[in-house]
Computed example of a mutant assay.
Amino acid sequence: MRRTGTTRRGAFTATGAIAMGAVLAGCGDGSGPREGSAGTDAATADAQALAARTERTLRASSARTSRELLARYEHVVRAYPATVARLSPLRDAVRAHAEALAPDGKESLVFSRTRATDAAAAVKELAVAERRTADAHTATLLTASPELARLLASIAAAGAAHAYLLNELAKETSS
Rank of each mutant, 00 (worst) to 15 (best):
L126Q: 04
E55W: 04
P103S: 11
D118R: 09
A79E: 07
A116F: 05
D118Q: 07
R59M: 13
A14S: 10
A82V: 09
A49H: 00
A25G: 07
T54V: 07
A71V: 00
A79P: 06
H97G: 03
V77Q: 09
T117W: 12
A96T: 00
T83Q: 01
T65Y: 03
L126Y: 02
H97I: 06
T65V: 15
R113V: 01
S31N: 10
S88I: 12
T114G: 06
P81D: 08
A49K: 04
A22I: 15
L109T: 02
G32Q: 14
L58P: 02
T44R: 11
V94G: 08
A120P: 03
R34W: 01
V128A: 04
D92H: 11
A119F: 02
G28A: 04
A49V: 01
P33N: 06
P81A: 05
A43C: 01
T13K: 15
R78V: 09
E125A: 03
T83K: 01
C27A: 15
A82E: 08
G32L: 06
A17F: 07
D29S: 12
L70M: 01
K124L: 15
G39T: 08
E68C: 13
R115D: 11
E55Q: 03
G28S: 14
S66R: 03
R115M: 13
H97T: 06
A120H: 07
A71K: 01
G30S: 12
A51D: 12
A49Q: 01
A52T: 04
A49T: 00
T54S: 10
E55I: 02
E74R: 15
A71F: 00
D92Q: 14
V128D: 11
R56Y: 07
A38C: 03
H75D: 15
Y80K: 03
A63F: 15
G36S: 08
T13W: 07
R86W: 10
A129F: 11
L70S: 01
T114A: 14
R86A: 13
G32A: 15
R91P: 12
S37F: 08
L109V: 07
A116H: 09
